[in-house]
Amino acid sequence: MPVSIQRVSKTYNRYGTSVDALDDVSLNIPDGQFVSLVGPSGCGKSTLLSLVGGLETLSRGQISRTGQPAIVFQEAALFPWRTVLDNVAFGLQLRGVGKRERRDRAASALRMVHLARFAEAYPYELSGGMRQRAAIARALVLDPTVLLMDEPFGALDAQTRALLQDELLSVWERTRKTVLFVTHSLDEALILSDRVVLFSARPGRIVADVAVEAPRPRDTADPPLAALQRHLRDLLAAEVEKVARAEMDADWEGAAVTAPSPEQNVGADI
């Protein structure tokens, strides 16, 4: 298993309060599987990716994984002072790969996401979709076994998103990376993945873990997929409603009765 998550919990401690982000999550992901993580916002999806990526330390449980995963974030977070090619080559540079080789490898990663023509451009010259493709190339060039993607297309317009979904699938079909893909869109999850994992409201627990077997390219209007979508949508709606209710409670009585959340703490500092 390239990724094995065993009974993982995560509690953040900040400003003297603690937030339970994940509660007893277990997930085994076989080699080459494309898995989507879906859940209401704040349920700990990004936290789980950070834990798998080694950017956060876990509170309880165990995670094992093959190699160092690469991450693609919601924003490209490219370095504006480097050309696209040098952005993609940066990870290799840090690993001591020689200039010639890292430029060659970066260029071929850029070809994979159809961005080769813009190798010498600077990030400010690219559109949002192009930047996101550069970010994908920057992750792919490290040739990770596991690719972690945190709502990578969430900030893009609908047409660009559809385009990038297609490209991602073709890259995945060629490289067969193991992919953990966070999204808040059930549609996106169903179109892309082999498996959809649905999380509860915070603290995140797994409420559904379903295989999606329809052949690609997919259309969520197809009856079997549509039925699966309805099923997951109802589950998701119930969790989202819990979040909404919790937020209202905090608004009404939180200040006087319940412990303040960290977000409130910041504002109430003075």
């Binding site: 950017l55 974030f73 940066f90 840090l94």
Partner: peptide
């Protein structure tokens, strides 16, 4: 600095003096 810039750098393996110098 945008937090994502730092996370991206960290993810790519920039730490210590190289994080200072390159990022």
């Amino acid at each position: 600095l945008p937090p994502l810039t730092l996370r991206a750098a960290q993810m790519l393996g920039a730490h210590g003096p190289r994080l200072w110098w390159h990022v």
